[in-house]
Design a binder for these strands. Structure first.
Length: 855
RNA sequence: GCCGAAGUGGCGGAAUAGGCAGACGCGCACGACUCAAAAUCGUGUUCCCUACGGGAAUGAGGGUUCGAUUCCCUCCUUCGGCACCA
């Protein structure tokens, strides 16, 4: 039959009827569905006690102005997983908001003379619109913006709660100061060897200032425990390193009285090696140690004064440089080693830091590299007290001839009744020598078990405008008092016009803002003009999402009880020791104040990697290598951008962008479209498929479903896409074999679209609803379950190895018994050829996997 | 120096209970369609050799095993955390 005349005839007759547009037009489809989903409140999450909840959280962005590809990389795979969870039947909460306080807004204020609030809210509006193009299932009714007064009212309230519970306090301290951002920083926000500001990369300097702190160190031990939470190993390790717990003992050394007013002040030291006490041949104090002056004898006063002065002048980087030669001066004073009554000299040296331990140490040169270097330079005594095992006969350690310290395991010597006790490389009380000596010290009352941390309290004062005000008031007579709750929030003024950074908060220079009355006596008082670290705002945003309009408290308890804790949290790993540590501290502090429950806010944490530029460097505006998602969405559609971001790298690792690579994902989306919409397919040899074709199709579908389900669970997005591509390729082949129209084909289509829905929500909806006429919405469908029987292979091809080398492949029934398989192997000509008539010594049959012959 | 993660084709990567290394995609090559190009479709693509066959290969070396990308030991490289922290 000739089809051509017929076709011409049809066209003529049916001309008035417009042809359905069958080409894939992502721009139109995506806009259409985004509008409908929003109008229908498809992604509104409300408490439903009958269903299991799933709180999926992704880190909220700073409204810097434009959504970049990194935001997409963080958010769209997280969205896909949240969608998957939803299809699995969970009641999913997936909120979004803005971390809206922060420095760049002030930078813009200075540059463009625009109020930070205006700049910030303009950016938020722009980014919201950009985010809508992602087609994510954000519940916008739960949006929270940390710069909204309704939000920061509660940030202030939390501060007051912490203050009232003794967890917020003010003290004068040597603090880190960024000279570019003109503000103090928390220790976590100073990074790297060169101690630079985390935000701007400028090296920080030290300043002596009175600031507000949160008592995070109270939770040091608890923060080291990660019980019951599924967090990446390296985040836990980073936090553990940061907290830096070391176990040891504190010991009190009495000083030798040598003048009228120096009647033997005791000096406390901390050591992790109390087992080496007998080897302590001198003491070293930090130049800042308060007892230095008292201990120093008149003859040494001049030298000590000079040394202190030069130490003060040096920066931390100079002082803490590891290759720096040791310096120090003798004070003229002596201490008594409490374990053997030896008189030992007391020195001052800057290698001992006032900020750690007690600012004074016992020096054991034989077993500590730093002390050894110091002792050799200044000719101080070296007494070994740990002898390496085995070395004792031929070359025992000797104080005079040692060339380096011996900080390793051995046996105690020169240590009285402890001689012979084995000292291992174990730290703390796991070391028998340390344990024995510490127990003895406690018995004798000389010292006690002690623990020291690197971790410091969180400095939260910032000398900046655009942050939540610290709600404290100072009165000459009543000191510091919190602003009464009914006066919260302390609002930021709109009428500010001087932004120049001066090193003090712009609020200080506002003519009236700081003037208020004392909450106690109602007399004149002044407000704190510093604002809070923005990490304070982000420590609790996951709670504000629960009820952003709630005004009786920071959150609605009912919402809390249903949704918390966060089930999965996704975001960048650069926050390992900042936000992710602060938020844990915050939750524990709130728990102790009776505000939250449970020990941890976040159960499962996963970090995405970074999308690098095509030249393998970090994307930056100055390099001009930034990939703009808006342009990509316009060219390919959001579904393709989403798919490519999930496909192009291991999500938790990241990779350089590849502008050609995205074509592969675009092709996949288009080929799916064609496969499901091409009218030719429906007519071509439909229904003629053999039993085998249909069985194979169904098997592939269920095998894919199994893998995709598993990979979604494990955040392995790249293999989800490749499995879907593979199945699509199979379906094209099945189409050629006439599978279209069969029950297996229909099932394949349905499962395919459901698997695709979390990845590419728009095209999946369009095909599901418009082309197959299935009930709207695909995003409210249940995830299909795997038919294990269908997924099972019935005939498998297995390799046959001879001495570990694959020589042939044979086809056997999947459930074939060992004898059957063996027979099939022996029947192979190739195998017989390789055996050369020999009988295999051993035949290993691994069911369903392979056969291995040993000759 | 201590702690952690990772090293697989030209590239991103797959192989998730020790069992066919290189799935899927990019790129490249060839072919079909086209006047031509793009798009699309098809075929091939780890390396080496005397090439319908054979050998080597998952950072390097060793070990366990019939069999190791996978487990164990030593080392190298890259990335991240800590570091004069007593």
């Amino acid at each position: 039959m000739d089809a051509k005349p017929k076709a011409i005839q049809t066209t003529k007759k049916e001309e008035p009827k417009p042809m359905k547009d069958l080409s894939y037009n992502p721009g139109a489809i995506e806009k259409k569905w985004q509008a409908k989903w929003e109008a229908d409140k498809l992604y509104r999450s409300v408490i439903d006690e009958r269903r299991k909840k799933h709180y999926a959280l992704t880190m909220l962005p700073y409204p810097s102005g434009d959504l970049h590809i990194g935001h997409w990389y963080a958010m769209t795979p997280s969205d896909a997983r949240a969608r998957f969870k939803r299809m699995q039947g969970y009641n999913v909460l997936f909120p979004m908001g803005f971390d809206a306080f922060g420095l760049p807004a002030e930078g813009a204020a200075i540059k463009n003379n625009i109020h930070p609030k205006i700049w910030t809210y303009q950016n938020i509006e722009r980014m919201r619109a950009q985010m809508r193009t992602m087609g994510a299932m954000f519940d916008w009714e739960r949006e929270a913006v940390s710069a909204d007064p309704e939000y920061y009212k509660w940030t202030e309230w939390f501060f007051i709660q912490l203050y009232k519970h003794g967890l917020a306090y003010r003290k004068k301290a040597t603090v880190d100061w960024c000279p570019k951002d003109n503000t103090t920083l928390a220790r976590e926000q100073v990074k790297g060897d060169d101690r630079v500001c985390d935000r701007c990369g400028t090296p920080v300097i030290k300043k002596e200032l009175e600031q507000w702190f949160f008592k995070a160190t109270k939770y040091a031990d608890e923060l080291l425990r990660f019980d019951g939470i599924d967090w990446p190993e390296f985040i836990k390790v980073s936090q553990t390193n940061w907290i830096g717990r070391s176990e040891g003992a504190s010991v009190i050394f009495k000083t030798v009285p040598s003048g009228d007013d120096k009647a033997g002040d005791p000096i406390e030291i901390f050591t992790t090696r109390p087992d080496t006490l007998w080897g302590a041949t001198f003491m070293v104090m930090s130049p800042e140690h308060p007892l230095v002056e008292k201990i120093t004898t008149p003859e040494h006063a001049q030298a000590v004064r000079e040394y202190k002065a030069q130490a003060e002048k040096q920066t931390d980087i100079q002082r803490e440089a590891k290759d720096k030669e040791k310096t120090g001066v003798f004070t003229g004073g002596y201490a008594i080693n409490p374990v053997n009554e030896e008189r030992i000299p007391i020195w001052v040296a800057d290698y001992v830091l006032m900020s750690y331990g007690t600012g004074a140490i016992m020096a054991v040169p034989a077993h500590d590299e730093r002390d050894f270097e110091f002792a050799r330079k200044f000719g101080l005594k070296v007494i070994p007290v740990i002898q390496p095992v085995g070395a004792s006969h031929d070359s025992p350690l000797q104080g005079d001839t040692m060339t380096e310290a011996y900080p390793h395991e051995g046996v105690m010597i020169n240590s009285g009744q402890f001689n012979g006790t084995p000292a291992t490389n174990d730290k703390g009380m796991a070391n028998p020598a340390i344990k024995a000596v510490t127990d003895w010290l406690e018995q004798k009352g000389i010292g006690k078990r002690d623990v020291n941390y690197r971790y410091r309290d969180w400095l939260i004062s910032r000398q900046r405008f655009w942050g939540a005000p610290i709600p404290m008031v100072y009165c000459e007579t009543h000191g510091w008092n919190p602003v009464p709750d009914d006066q919260l929030p302390v609002l930021l003024p709109d009428d500010i016009d001087e932004w120049k950074p001066t090193g003090e908060s712009p609020l200080k220079f506002h003519p009236t803002w700081k003037n208020t009355t004392c909450p106690v006596c109602h007399g004149p008082a002044t407000r704190e003009t510093d604002t809070m670290d923005t990490f304070m705002c982000s420590s609790w945003y996951h709670l504000r999402y629960l009820s952003p309009q709630y005004d009786k408290g920071p959150f609605d308890e009912q919402e809390y009880n249903y949704w918390m804790p966060v089930d999965t949290y996704t975001g960048g790993s650069e926050h390992a020791t900042m936000h992710l540590l602060y938020t844990r501290f915050f939750h524990k502090a709130l728990r102790d104040m009776g505000i939250t429950e449970g020990n941890e806010p976040v159960m499962q944490l996963r970090n995405q990697g970074m999308v690098l530029a095509e030249d393998n460097t970090k994307m930056s505006k100055s390099r001009g290598n930034v990939v703009a998602p808006d342009v990509l969405v316009k060219k390919y559609g959001a579904d393709t951008v989403r798919a490519y971001l999930m496909f192009f790298a291991r999500w938790q690792q990241g990779a350089p962008w590849d502008s050609q690579g995205i074509e592969g994902s675009a092709r996949w989306i288009r080929r799916v479209w064609t496969l499901f919409t091409d009218p030719q397919i429906a007519s071509d040899s439909a229904g003629a498929a053999s039993e085998e074709t249909r069985r194979n199709l169904r098997r592939k579908v269920h095998q894919t479903l199994k893998r995709v389900t598993r990979d979604f669970e494990n955040f392995e997005f790249n293999t989800i896409i490749s499995s879907l591509m593979e199945l699509m390729n199979e379906m094209y082949k099945a189409r050629e074999a006439g599978a279209v129209g069969t029950d297996e084909w229909k099932e394949a289509q349905e499962i395919y679209l459901k698997m695709m829905a979390p990845v590419a929500p728009h095209i999946a909806e369009e095909l599901w609803t418009e082309h197959f006429g299935k009930p709207y919405s695909i995003h409210q469908q249940m995830w299909s379950s795997v038919d294990e029987a269908a997924a099972k292979d019935d005939v498998i091809e297995i390799p046959v190895q001879i001495n570990g080398k694959v020589r042939d492949r044979i086809s056997v029934a999947a459930d074939a018994g060992e004898d059957e398989v063996k027979a099939a192997v022996m029947a192979s000509e190739v195998i017989q050829k390789h055996l050369e008539g020999k009988e295999p010594k051993k035949v290993i049959v691994v069911k369903g996997k392979l056969v291995s012959l040993v000759v």
